[in-house]
Each structure stands twice: as C-alpha cells, then as structure tokens.
C-alpha cells in the first residue's frame, strides 16, 4: 500500500504532466481556435487567396457565400481576407501589451513584496494611483501622448495592465516569502538575490501565468476598442476593431459587423477558457 501510494505520485516533469492531464473537449476546441488565429497571423496567404487591400468594385457588399465566406465590403474586398490579414496586428499587439504588463508589473510586485518596508509603501501608492484611473481612460491618455498607431495602442494597453500584475505578484511573493523553504534557504546562507531568483520568482509566477493568458484576451478587447475609436493604424489596415468600426457605418449589411465581431469573440472566449483550465489544473 505504501509503495503504491509513493509510486502514484511521480515527479511532475513537463511531458509527464501533459500526458497525465485529461483535457476537456471544450479546451481542445479553444486551443484549436487559438491555433487558427496564430496560423492566420503567421501565414495569412495560406488561408485565403484574396487581396485584403484591393477589391473588385463590381462585387461590393455581397452577402456571405461559398466564394466569399464573410461577404464583401463597400469596396468589394473579401471580408474573410481582411479579417485574416488583420489578425497579425490584432493578436501580436495583444502579446506586446501582455509582455509589458507582466514584466513591468511583475518587477514592481516582486520588489515591493520581497523587500517590504518603504519600497513596498512607495510601490503600493503607485499601484493605487494606477488603479484609480479607469483602465481604458489610462490607455486612451497614453496613446494620445505617444501617437495613434497599433503598436502604441498595445503599449498603452500594457501600461494600463501594470497595476493588476503588480498587485497579484506582490501578494504571491508575500505568500511565498513566508514559506519554510525560503526561511531555510536564508539560514543556509542564500543571498537575497539568489532567493529572489531561485525560490520566490518561480513560485510566485505560478498564478501569474493564468492571469497573463486572461489578460491576453482582455488586451485583444482593449486594443480592438482603441482601434474602434480610431486610435490604431488607419485603413487600409484591417485590425478587427477597425473592421467593426467601418462596418458600423454599413449596418444595412450587418455581416460587416458580425463577422469580425464573431472572430474577436471566439478568440477571446477561447483564450479565457484556456486561462480557466490552467487555473483549475494548477
């Protein structure tokens, strides 16, 4: 009995953990949707043979059909091609935003939580200030200051997420700092930076991963909102938010709004589902 229970808890290596997991079908579907989005952004030419910029004026405002899956827009451009080609900047910019949020927020939270004292007080006030300004308004202000394009919109979105990551990181670090293994590492003569790097960071970052995935979905939404208001790249770029914004002037041909909107929703929903699955399996 003892032997059985010992051998039933193998060391969790990367592959061992993956094969041991029972992945629910919804999560597999979510991964497929995300994989498709990544495929669209890496090699859009593989998924459509239409040109996203130059259309055929004779074929304008056609409804969805076998030839044009999402219909065509007011200039006769294939909307599916526009969505596919717009994925790269919609998805990559969300990635930039998350990286900024995780790195900047992570460092702030790590230092505040680990050193405590006046460092913590200073950072805590900074985070309070960032939280007091509505996230979207903050993003709008930052993008106004640095200029309207999609990369800047991504930077602005990242800045507005710093406070969230700083908070979570700080509370995780404080939790970890009190653990016995950290105390013993201190007693064994480990330096502060060694403990910070070797023990606190890996443990604290566990709950940051699902949050980062969740933030990825949220960033897609915020960047789409900024693009919708016209703070991203101007046309003929085809960011999802921009496509919806153009479509709103043609509500008589509703697929111009619904098709890019459904793609956005499906992507964000999948990302959120993956985040929840990561949280549950942790």
């Amino acid at each position: 009995m003892t032997l059985a229970s010992v051998s039933s808890t193998p060391r969790a290596t990367g592959i061992g953990r993956l094969t041991g997991l029972r992945v629910p079908p919804v999560v597999i579907l979510s991964f497929l949707v995300v994989a498709l989005a990544i495929g669209w952004s890496l090699a859009p030419g593989l998924f459509t043979h239409y040109d996203p910029v130059n259309g055929t004026p004779a074929q304008k405002l056609l409804g969805p059909s076998a030839a044009h899956w999402f219909g065509t827009d007011h200039l006769g451009r294939d909307l599916y091609a526009r969505v596919v080609y717009g994925t790269a900047s919609s998805v990559a910019s969300a990635l930039i935003a998350v990286v900024i949020g995780v790195v900047a927020g992570g460092i702030v939270g790590l230092l505040a939580g680990f050193f405590g004292g006046w460092v913590d007080t200073v950072f805590a006030r900074l985070v309070d200030v960032l939280l007091a300004i509505p996230k979207f308004l903050l993003a709008v202000i930052v993008v106004t200051a640095i200029g309207f394009d999609t990369t800047n919109a991504a930077i602005a979105t990242g800045v507005s997420a710093v406070a969230l990551f700083a908070r979570v990181m700080r509370s995780e670090v404080i939790k970890t700092r009190q653990a016995t293994f950290v105390e013993s590492s201190f007693l064994l003569g480990g330096s502060r930076w060694h403990i910070l790097w070797r023990h606190v960071l890996p443990n604290a970052s566990r709950s940051v991963l699902p949050l980062a995935v969740l933030q990825f979905g949220d960033s897609i939404l915020v960047i789409a909102s900024l693009a919708f208001l016209g703070y991203g790249d101007p046309p003929p770029a085809s960011d999802w938010g921009l496509l919806i914004s153009i479509g709103k002037d043609y509500l008589k041909w509703p697929w111009l709004v619904y098709a890019p909107a459904l793609v956005t929703i499906a992507t964000v929903l999948s990302v959120n589902r993956i985040s929840r699955w990561l949280r549950e399996t942790d």
């Binding site: 939404l221 709004v257 909107a261």
Partner: peptide, 22 residues
C-alpha cells in the same frame, strides 16, 4: 459571465442598434 467578458461592449451596442433600432 465568461461569455459576457469576451464580448467587446461596442459590439453589444452595435448588435442592439442593429436589432432593436433598425
């Protein structure tokens, strides 16, 4: 809740305008 969190609010607005307005 997770569905609601995945829909941009301008899309909800446009859908409502399209359905109930037009």
């Amino acid at each position: 809740p997770s569905l609601f969190l995945s829909v941009p609010n301008f899309v909800i607005g446009l859908v409502l305008i399209h359905l109930f307005g037009f």
